[in-house]
């Protein structure tokens, strides 16, 4: 998984719903370049314009609850941002891995020390979070190496193709 993320902290609270991440009227849109323009636009209108690769979205409990759509994660991957959540349920957790968005789950004591606008340095592979603005550092449990491989491959289907090619299988044809 991409180790070095260096960028701005975009801080959000608890219960950020899937439909708030990308409004449901865009459910038939699958172009990541279009979807990224809608990511969190209703919650933080400046985010789609200003977020840069290496930035990190930091959220409270129950991230991306509700509808089970891959759209917000496609937009995040296109943007090149990472994700640190206090809690995230099975559906969005799996979607983040499947789409290939780097993810850490951190306790409330860590989340409380990450403020909107802080400069962060995050090593997703090692689970290290450095807040350069406050000078504080945190260690959390990284994704298992197994899931990091999927994220590093760029998501589930890229990973599947790589596995099939490695196995010399005729299943994958370019």
């Amino acid at each position: 998984m991409t180790a070095g993320f260096q960028g701005r902290c975009w801080r959000f609270g608890d219960d950020l719903a899937s439909d708030q991440l990308i409004p449901p009227q865009h459910v038939f849109e699958y172009d990541p370049a279009v979807l990224r323009r809608h990511l969190l636009a209703e919650v933080r209108p400046e985010l789609p314009e200003r977020a840069k690769p290496g930035d990190v979205l930091v959220t409270g409990r129950n991230f991306a609850n509700g509808s089970h759509h891959s759209h917000p994660f496609l937009a995040m991957k296109e943007m090149g941002v990472g994700l640190i959540c206090q809690t995230v349920s099975r559906g969005p957790f799996r979607l983040a891995v499947f789409v290939g968005v780097p993810l850490l789950v951190a306790g409330p004591e860590v989340i409380a020390e990450l403020n909107d606008g802080d400069a962060l340095q995050v090593d997703f592979a090692a689970g290290r979070i450095a807040n350069e603005t406050t000078g504080r550092e945190f260690q959390v449990e990284p994704l298992s190496p197994f899931l990091q491989d999927i994220v590093a491959a760029g998501g589930g289907l890229n990973h599947a193709r790589a596995l099939l090619e490695a196995e010399g299988s005729a299943h994958a044809e370019r």
């Binding site: 089970h68 891959s70 559906g91 799996r94 979607l95 499947f98 197994f146 899931l147 999927i150 589930g156 289907l157 990973h159 599947a160 193709r161 596995l163 099939l164 299943h171």
Partner: peptide, 16 residues
Amino acid sequence: PFSIELTMILALGRIW
């Protein structure tokens, strides 16, 4: 239920 991840299962025959 695996939703869109079913694609990976169809490809590999297995899933994490």
